[in-house]
């Protein structure tokens, strides 16, 4: 059986970029060994000391996130309001249009009222699901991808409405 520490390290280091993995691993090993030795010196059995030390470090993937700085959420507070706004706008505008259009097309094609309405609702529903999925996926990418960091800032700034700092209300007096 693979020792506990080895399995823990593998899980904690998996997402580390290669450039720093070896160094992080070496350091974690020595820190873990220090902690275990301390407990053993205090009279604890090695096996239970090792277990306690690893448990003290917590969920390994959480520790990994600490090292990589990767967020433990899909969409963070910086872009959440923009995300919600865009999603509400798209769904609120496009879904009713699709519903009306589909119904009209069905009716024009000679379908009965009930059939037309069913087609409209069904189409609108799947359009809504698609919209929500793709908009969410886009924002998850913006949130997590290193390359998207600048784009994220720009998008929030471009909306001009929800920056986390530097919020300004346009003053009506200034334009007079």
């Amino acid at each position: 059986m693979i020792p506990l520490t080895e399995r823990y390290l593998a899980a904690a280091l998996r997402s580390n970029p290669d450039a720093q993995r070896a160094d992080v691993e070496r350091e974690l090993r020595s820190s873990l060994a220090d902690a275990v030795e301390d407990r053993v010196a205090a009279g604890e059995e090695r096996v239970s000391a090792e277990k306690a030390v690893l448990e003290g470090l917590g969920e390994p993937t959480r520790l990994a996130a600490g090292y990589t700085g990767r967020p433990l959420y899909l969409i963070g507070p910086d872009v959440f309001l923009v995300y919600r706004h865009i999603l509400a706008m798209l769904v609120g505008v496009i879904v009713p249009i699709v519903a009306v259009l589909l119904t009209a097309v069905e009716l024009a094609g000679g379908a009965g009222y009930l059939d037309g309405r069913t087609a409209g609702i069904g189409g609108a529903f799947s359009t809504g699901v698609h919209l929500a999925f793709w908009v969410t996926l886009t924002f998850v990418f913006l949130e997590r991808a290193e390359v998207a960091r600048e784009a994220r800032t720009e998008i929030v700034a471009a909306t001009g409405r929800w920056p986390s700092t530097g919020f300004r209300l346009s003053s009506p007096a200034a334009s007079a």
């Binding site: 350091e27 820190s31 902690a35 600490g66």
Partner: peptide, 10 residues
């Protein structure tokens, strides 16, 4: 906590 300090050092 160790899991705060170790990543913080880096």
């Amino acid at each position: 906590d160790a899991n705060t300090i170790y990543p913080l050092l880096r």
